[in-house]
Computed example of a mutant assay.
Amino acid sequence: MAYLGIDHPLIAVHDLDKAIETYRDLGFFIAPPGQHPWGTSTALALFRHQIIEIVSIGDETLLDGYDTGGFRFGRHVEGFLNSSEGVALTALFTEDAEEAEEQLAARGIQCTGTIDFGRDVVRADGEPDRTKTTLKVFHNDSLPRLSVFACQQHRRDLLEFPDRMTHPNGAQGFAAATIVAEDKAPVLDWFTRIHNVPATKDAEGFDAVETTNGHWRIMAPDQFEAFYRVTLSQAFLANGPRISALDVRVKNLEVVKDCASVTLSETDEHLIASDMSQLGGMALRFVPS
């Protein structure tokens, strides 16, 4: 069965180098940046079956490439960057993209299109190799920033190198992705259908949808501001509900404090990086795993 867990939100930023520097200042190991064949540049913080991916516009001449069902990945990212930084869409982990498409179709969610691509890499032993990735795009016209794609990495061994998954801050992945929505109902309907589970409440008492790899947390704007200690602009939800924070699992909060050179708010059990303007329209909450 092709399970769908939260794999990686794509955090779109104007200045990739600056964003990389900020995330490194928080203690993440960010691999050297690369580029997608549809023109977006990309930098990764890698974990086991999860990624924090930061993207920007790398080559404008490629943005119209890889059209699938009218969806153009590069233009989708560009369109949201023209409005604001932040998550443009999210990858869901699967080991069988074709089966994932069949399962979602059975739940009334039609695949927009398929993208197959690869890139040349050098393995740890110095030998050349090539990745292979299949994406099944599920664009949501009414919730465009919450569009998703099932992502099958056929050669995960060419991505999850152990030396690139060790982070100075002890990060091990993320436990939750938090969505801000003025109207929660359509968001809950979208994700309960994707994951084929009922809505529930998380440990903090907020609306949630569990996946096999972390959970979606859905908050009203005022709840988000109080919980993550931020102030949202009036235009923040101009493109509808959006992923606005990640809860990052770490081994020890003291290690995060020791290595981070970014200002953090401290609670009894968590640390919060709340300057969303530096983090690509995101807040990060560090939670002990």
Results as ranks from 00 to 15, higher is better:
198 P>K: 14
210 E>A: 11
205 G>W: 10
206 F>R: 11
209 V>W: 01
203 A>G: 06
225 E>G: 12
240 G>L: 11
239 N>Q: 13
222 D>T: 11
204 E>D: 15
211 T>Q: 00
200 T>G: 09
237 L>P: 03
206 F>I: 02
222 D>L: 08
221 P>T: 11
236 F>V: 07
202 D>V: 01
214 G>F: 01
231 T>K: 13
204 E>F: 11
200 T>P: 06
231 T>C: 12
226 A>S: 14
241 P>A: 11
242 R>E: 06
215 H>L: 02
215 H>F: 06
210 E>M: 13
219 M>A: 07
199 A>E: 15
218 I>S: 03
245 A>N: 08
208 A>P: 03
234 Q>D: 15
211 T>I: 02
201 K>V: 06
212 T>V: 04
198 P>S: 14
235 A>N: 12
211 T>G: 02
226 A>C: 05
211 T>W: 01
244 S>C: 05
235 A>Q: 13
202 D>Y: 00
235 A>Y: 05
219 M>N: 01
213 N>D: 09
245 A>Y: 01
220 A>N: 03
211 T>Y: 05
203 A>D: 14
235 A>G: 11
229 R>Y: 06
238 A>N: 04
220 A>L: 15
221 P>V: 12
232 L>S: 03
218 I>W: 04
209 V>G: 04
222 D>Y: 04
234 Q>C: 09
198 P>Y: 12
232 L>I: 13
207 D>R: 07
235 A>I: 03
224 F>S: 02
206 F>N: 11
233 S>M: 07
238 A>F: 04
199 A>P: 13
220 A>M: 10
213 N>S: 14
199 A>L: 09
214 G>Y: 06
211 T>E: 07
243 I>K: 05
236 F>D: 00
221 P>N: 12
208 A>T: 03
239 N>V: 00
213 N>Y: 07
222 D>Q: 11
216 W>K: 03
230 V>M: 09
226 A>I: 04
206 F>M: 08
201 K>M: 13
219 M>Q: 03
198 P>C: 10
238 A>Q: 07
230 V>H: 07
245 A>C: 09
213 N>P: 08
228 Y>W: 13
206 F>Q: 10
227 F>C: 15
228 Y>D: 03
212 T>S: 01
240 G>K: 13
214 G>T: 00
240 G>W: 05
216 W>V: 01
243 I>Y: 10
241 P>T: 10
206 F>C: 10
243 I>R: 07
231 T>I: 06
224 F>W: 04
213 N>A: 15
239 N>G: 02
235 A>F: 08
201 K>S: 11
218 I>Y: 00
217 R>T: 14
243 I>L: 15
218 I>A: 02
237 L>R: 10
232 L>C: 08
209 V>P: 00
204 E>L: 09
